[in-house]
Design a protein around this nucleic acid. Sequence first.
DNA 1: AAATTAATTAAATATCTATTTAAATAATGA
DNA 2: TCATTATTTAAATAGATATTTAATTAATTT
Lengths: 221, 221
Amino acid sequence: MERIMAKKRNGPGRPGGQTNLSDSILDVAEVLFADKGFAGTAMRHVAEKIEANPALINYYFSNKENLFRAVFLRRAEKITEARMARLAELEAAGGYGIEDLVRAFLEPTAALLETPQGRSFLRLHSRLHMEPEEIAFDLRRQVYQVSTRAYAEAFAALLPGMPRRRVYHKVSLMVGAYLYAFSDTNRLGELTEGLGAQEEQDGLIEDVVAFVSAGMRAGQG
Amino acid sequence: MERIMAKKRNGPGRPGGQTNLSDSILDVAEVLFADKGFAGTAMRHVAEKIEANPALINYYFSNKENLFRAVFLRRAEKITEARMARLAELEAAGGYGIEDLVRAFLEPTAALLETPQGRSFLRLHSRLHMEPEEIAFDLRRQVYQVSTRAYAEAFAALLPGMPRRRVYHKVSLMVGAYLYAFSDTNRLGELTEGLGAQEEQDGLIEDVVAFVSAGMRAGQG
DNA sequence: AAATTAATTAAATATCTATTTAAATAATGA
DNA sequence: TCATTATTTAAATAGATATTTAATTAATTT
């Protein structure tokens, strides 16, 4: 007995109806790049997951590197924008402290923890930050240079007398701390054992904010 | 005119004299795995860098995964041992504080910053911590589970009343912070611009210790 | 309705990959 | 000295990879 439900088209040619495979490709590529890295991800496997031909990915994204860029930029640009918006709000409101600044920086990424797809991006994002390949630097600079520098200056203003070098070190430490904490590769379970996966995460964001805020203030004049 | 200096053997068969290619292979593989990742590193390229046949690597290490394990374990086991030894010294000496514990944990890795080969390992090490692949978890658990848990308990003892979950979060944050700071992928230069590459690193270790120690203490009763 | 454009597949291209096998040579042990 | 073991290479194996080309079909424009 044949099924009547929408069956995948099986030959060449433009399919009937509307398609939006571009977004599907980005979604599955995001998961694969997160789990297997750039080199470890095969275009063929991306294609298989959307049940399409590999050539289709090249049709939409030209090549693998460009696909990776698209996956990364789709979310990273929103993160930067949100950080800049949050910083502008703080400045408009007048006085703010270290902890406000830390929250403004971290919360746009912490929001991604709420969905599986967002968590995939966070893993991808953490990996990218530990990679010395030139493409990784390019992408990070392109998206984050301006906003990270703006935050570094804002921190410096709240830490009068602290040398710029130290402030930059601290910004790096903040970034490393949240990347790892949000990457879900730390496998806290290895340490905790007793706790369930959900309980482990309880209060994580507040703990990150407290830890980083205290670290930022350390050694103030 | 022929050269008389030691020329690479060019045919099959055991070469004259002593060889210790096993260590050379580990050194070269360490750099390549650090720069290109596991999937991005080709056995052929490892072989080329020591001017040997690819089969030789399989002769020594059986396969690629096992080569990676060997590269990682060579140094990681020394790090764990050093951490345990440092912790034992602290306990033997009687009283110690948060900052002593942070130094004991971090200095065995910070020492690797001093050589290019050590810095390659640190990059490899950071990458491994951001990877969700099962082999990455296995290796990290195998080497670090015991010592990291011992440090977590020691921190907990210095932070009476703090829930275990928070202590574990803080240990994760410490790990993330130092991994990124020591990975040399943060490219502080992107932020600093004015400073030279050497100046950038000045005081880095002290800044990490100060940041992490303050973070650990945050929210004490 | 005809022409053009968009979206898809099948098949081919040209490499690159890890690993194994067999042969070769040197060192070592009996 | 002879047999065995250790270390090396050349060549083959068996796939996997990213990308391109040409054909095909549907949608859109004229």
